[in-house]
Structures are given as C-alpha cells and as structure tokens.
Simulated assay, not measured.
Amino acid sequence: MKKLMLMLLISSVLVSCKINQLYLNVIEPAPVTLSQQIKKAGVINRSVPTDETRILDVLDKALSLEGVNLDKDGAEQAINGLSAELLNNKRFDDVRTLTDIDFRTPSLMGIFPVPLSWEIVSKVCREKGVDALFALEYYDTDTKLRYSTRDKGDKEVLGIKIPGIVHQADMETIVKTGWRIYDPINRVVADEYHHVQSVVFSGTGVTPLVAVAGLIGRKDAIKEVSSKAGHGYALRLIPYELRVMRDYFVKGTNNFKIAKRKAQVGKWNEAGELWEQETTNPKRKVAGRATYNMAIINEINGNLDTALAWAQKAWEYYKIRQALRYVDILENRMVKTDILIEQQQR
C-alpha cells in the first residue's frame, strides 16, 4: 500500500513538473440573444394578483409576516431597476415602462403564469410603439421569523443576582422574481428566468419585543435587493468576461525551459517561436507537446481557427491527451464567438 501511495505521489509530481497553467480572460456571449429588429423595449408588470387570487395573496402575506405593500413596492423597484439598466444598453433606441396598462396574473407564490397570448403581445407593442415586451411575470416574498435566547451570565443588582438573558430575533426574507421576454416579431419567448435572493436581519434585546424592534431597515433593504434583481436581469443581454484556465507544456528540451521563463514574464510570442521550432523535433513526445503549445499561443492571440488546427494535429498525429479535450474547448469557443458577433451587430 505504501509503495502504491509513493507511486501516485511521484506521478502527480511529474505531471505538475511538465505542465504549467495560465489564465485567460475571454468574452462570453450574453445568455440571451434578441432579434436585431428589436430596437424599442416595453417593460410591463404582471405580478399584480387578480381579484380571484387577491384573498389568497393576502393570506400568504399574513402567514409569511410580509409588511404592508411589501410585494407591491418591491415589484415596482424591480421594474425600475430593469428599465434603468435597459436604458444603459446601447442596442435599444427607446425603453418605455408601460404603467398605464393593468396587467394582472392569477399566479401566486413564485410560479410562472401562463404566457401572454401573441395577440395581446402584438397589440400592446403596436399601440405603444415598442418591438418587444420585458415582463416581470411574478414577484413574491416569503418571510420567516426565528426567535432564540442565550445566557449572558448572572448580573448583580443591589446585591441580588439576576440571570442575564439576551433575546434574539432573526428574520429571513426570500425575494423571488420571474421574468420573460416576448418577441412578437418571431413569436417566441426569448427568455424565461427565475431569480431568488435571501435577505437576513437580526435584532437583540432584553425582551422579545425589544429584539424584534431591532429589525430596522428591512423594507428598504428588500426594495434595494429587488432593484438589483431588475438590473441583473437586464444584464443577461450583455456579453461578459470570464476567466479560464489553460495547461501548457514546459518540459521536453532546453527550448521548453527558456519558453517557460519567457511566458512567466509575459513574452508569449517569443515563447511561441521556441515552441514552433520544436514542432519538427524527431522525438514524437517533444514534437507533440510543442504542437499542443502552438494551439495555446494562437488562442492567446485570438486566432481560434489556427489554434484548433494545431490542437487537432496534436491529437491526431501525436495522441497528446490534453489536446482532445482542448479541441472541444476551442470548438465551443468558436460557436460562442459566432453568437457574440451576432449579438454585437445592431
């Protein structure tokens, strides 16, 4: 057993010695792609309960310790946050919050309602002069209160020992929002997204009432979280930066050692020149590693087609194990790059 463990340890050391890791910042396409024809956005609130479900809504608020108008105010903040962030998006010529239309939904407690009919969506877009509808489909808060005590130690008053008890109230509010984007041009729901965030407050005091009274600022905090939920949803239309890790070979010949040091000081192109020299090395293992590294340097320089060709060669001709997985990574990046180009066209 000890011999086996020693062999595993040696193996891991050898792997770490022949390979280094680098980090790249790559641009990922936005999670949501909209038609280029959509230039004007309308924002609607469907989270208001219908008359038929209003009684259930009131009961839900009572059972979950929700404050007066908490859902109404929170939903308004979510809508405002969405509208503000959409206005910052250069792809839209105009963003309109459609507050003069009474949209209601029979859905309660964080469940998506039935989508709007395309007849309604098209009519609203036509009458309001917008190309698509961004809808807050539901907004719900669920609040729970936990109460506890802890011993603070005895306290002496006028020679009498009085037990010191601290009362603590912990209140957690879960804010749930559901969003859809209606594209009437192509008659598709371009996105359906559910977001959940928890807000926790604590208060302490010498009595339970004093502890609960310490739960101040709850409503303002929930409104702020709701606004951020709206901002966050609008960002699903924006490409974002992602940090990724890549492996590259640093052992094989003296050129690999020099290239390793050049890479460590940021001279990647000079390192690439040394790797390219080794792609014709008579030793297959060395040539294979150099071929794989050529894929890495080309990805660093943004040449994905060339990087893919090198990675494929590293696997097909030299069976470099890392190259096969790298081929999949590069092919995936190329697909995402095409989506990114489409998203950046207005």
Rank of each mutant, 00 (worst) to 15 (best):
K161A: 15
K161M: 13
K161D: 15
K161C: 02
K161L: 14
I162G: 01
P163Y: 11
G164F: 08
G164H: 08
I165F: 09
I165V: 15
V166A: 12
V166F: 00
H167I: 06
H167V: 06
H167G: 03
Q168V: 15
Q168T: 15
Q168H: 02
A169D: 05
A169Q: 04
A169R: 04
D170A: 10
D170H: 08
D170S: 12
D170R: 14
M171D: 01
M171H: 01
M171V: 11
M171I: 10
E172L: 10
E172D: 14
E172G: 04
T173H: 00
T173G: 03
I174T: 15
I174M: 12
I174Y: 04
V175L: 05
V175Y: 01
K176N: 15
G178R: 04
G178H: 06
G178V: 08
W179A: 08
W179H: 07
W179R: 08
W179N: 05
W179L: 09
R180I: 08
R180F: 05
R180Y: 05
R180V: 07
I181P: 02
Y182E: 08
Y182P: 00
Y182W: 10
D183M: 06
D183E: 03
D183F: 05
P184W: 11
P184G: 09
P184D: 08
P184F: 12
I185T: 10
I185F: 06
I185M: 02
I185C: 00
I185L: 13
N186F: 08
N186E: 14
R187C: 03
V188M: 09
V188G: 02
A190E: 03
A190Q: 04
A190P: 10
D191Q: 10
D191W: 09
D191I: 00
D191R: 07
D191F: 11
E192V: 09
E192M: 09
E192F: 01
Y193G: 05
Y193S: 13
H194K: 11
H194N: 11
H195A: 14
H195C: 05
V196K: 10
V196Y: 01
V196Q: 12
V196R: 09
Q197A: 12
Q197L: 07
Q197R: 11
S198G: 10
V199Y: 06
V199W: 00
V199D: 03
V200L: 14
V200P: 02
V200C: 04
V200F: 09
V200N: 12
F201N: 07
F201L: 15
F201C: 02
S202W: 01
S202D: 02
G203Y: 03
G203E: 02
G203W: 00
G203T: 02
T204P: 01
T204E: 15
T204I: 14
T204G: 03
G205T: 04
G205K: 04
V206Y: 06
V206S: 14
V206C: 00
T207G: 02
P208L: 10
P208Y: 10
P208H: 09
L209N: 08
L209I: 05
L209T: 07
V210R: 04
V210Q: 13
V210C: 00
V210M: 11
A211N: 06
A211L: 00
A211D: 05
V212K: 14
V212L: 13
A213E: 14
G214H: 04
G214Y: 03
G214R: 06
G214C: 07
G214K: 06
L215G: 07
L215R: 02
L215E: 06
L215A: 07
I216K: 14
I216T: 14
